[in-house]
Computed example of a mutant assay.
Amino acid sequence: MRKTLYELIQKVKAFLVRNFHQYNSKLPYIITVIVALIIVIGGINLFIELTDELKDELLPQYDQAITDYVISFRTAALTKYFIFITNIGDLYGYLIVLAISSFISYFFFKRWRGVVQTIFVLVVASLSNVILKRFIDRARPGIEHLVSVETLSYPSGHAMSAMAFYGFVIYLFSRFKINIFLKTLIIILLVFIILNIGISRIYLGVHYPSDIAGGYIAGFIWVVFCILIFNLVEVFRRDPKT
């Protein structure tokens, strides 16, 4: 991605040099950041508009059918499993994963930047989730809740944070120079965790399936945006002409 960004910025530079006499070397980076912001804001607006359009028509039917199917599998053992899984998508779960990531980054790769970036992605996703919940103002499902909840329903904070946090960890691991089998195994495990966290929220009766889908979409938007910005900053930092 850094190579692609660098080539794009060089093209923007060439265009600005040809067409403007007073050229600022930082202008291409500023333009790229603005475009990135427009993309993510546009994506969020589209996400909200689509949600509003579907909420009163198609979603209730699909939500009910999928929820009924998922909770039909409720057993004591499965409930314990999904409570454990949903806790992995909560504060203590993230702290444990961050501790493990910090250990790996320091002792094996001698880098802290990835850990700091992961924390940033999680914080941004969590804050934006609060804003989206208040804006959309959707109540929780009216069925039995197997865990206590206090906030609004849409989009799912667990699904959004899981996609943002574990999704970014997947991105970091994809760049690590480690055994390909081990890398693939870790990525599959993280994808499994993301999907299971979403299912756990439906199973426990605290979210509609559409809450989970909305959370995944919003979390993915933040992952892509943050990856773009982090790589842009790295290109900007290493570019000797700026």
Results as ranks from 00 to 15, higher is better:
Phe73Leu: 04
Phe73Met: 05
Leu91Arg: 14
Ile44Lys: 06
Phe84Val: 04
Asn87Asp: 13
Lys80Glu: 13
Leu78Asn: 02
Val35Cys: 06
Thr51Gly: 11
Phe73Cys: 05
Ala76Trp: 13
Asn87Arg: 13
Leu58Tyr: 12
Leu58Cys: 10
Gln61Phe: 15
Asn45Cys: 10
Asp63Ala: 01
Ile48Ala: 04
Ala77Tyr: 14
Phe47Met: 12
Thr51Pro: 07
Thr86Leu: 02
Arg74Val: 05
Leu78Gly: 01
Val40Arg: 02
Tyr81Ser: 07
Ile71Cys: 07
Ile85Cys: 03
Thr86Lys: 00
Ser72Gly: 04
Gly89Arg: 00
Ile38Trp: 08
Asp56Lys: 03
Ala36Asp: 06
Leu37Ala: 11
Glu57Trp: 15
Ala36Asn: 08
Thr79Ser: 05
Leu50Arg: 13
Ala77Glu: 14
Asp52Arg: 15
Phe47Pro: 06
Leu50Val: 10
Ile38Lys: 08
Ile83Asn: 01
Ile38Pro: 06
Gly93Pro: 01
Ile71Val: 12
Leu91Lys: 14
Val40Glu: 01
Tyr92Ser: 08
Glu49Lys: 15
Ile31Glu: 02
Gly89Asn: 02
Ile39Pro: 03
Glu53Leu: 12
Gly93Ile: 00
Leu91Asp: 12
Ile34Asn: 04
Gln64Gly: 10
Ala76Val: 12
Thr75Met: 01
Gly42Phe: 02
Val33Phe: 11
Tyr92Asp: 08
Leu91Pro: 09
Gly43Glu: 02
Leu50Gly: 11
Ala65Ile: 09
Asp56Gly: 03
Ile41Glu: 13
Val35Leu: 06
Ile31Gly: 04
Glu49Gln: 15
Ile44Val: 10
Leu95Ile: 09
Tyr62Met: 09
Pro60Gln: 04
Ala36Thr: 09
Tyr81Thr: 05
Ile41Leu: 15
Asp68Cys: 09
Tyr94His: 10
Asp68His: 10
Thr67Ser: 05
Thr79Gly: 01
Gly89Tyr: 02
Val33Gly: 09
Lys55Tyr: 14
Thr67Tyr: 04
Thr86Cys: 05
Thr51Gln: 11
Leu50His: 11
Leu95Ala: 07
Ile44Cys: 06
Ser72Ala: 05
Gly42Cys: 02
Asp56Gln: 04
Gly42Pro: 00
Ile39Ser: 06
Thr32Tyr: 12
Gln61Ser: 15
Asp52Pro: 09
Thr79Glu: 02
Gly43Met: 04
Ile41Pro: 09
Glu57Met: 13
Asp52Asn: 15
Ile66Ala: 00
Thr75Asp: 04
Phe82Ala: 03
Ile83Thr: 04
Leu91Ile: 13
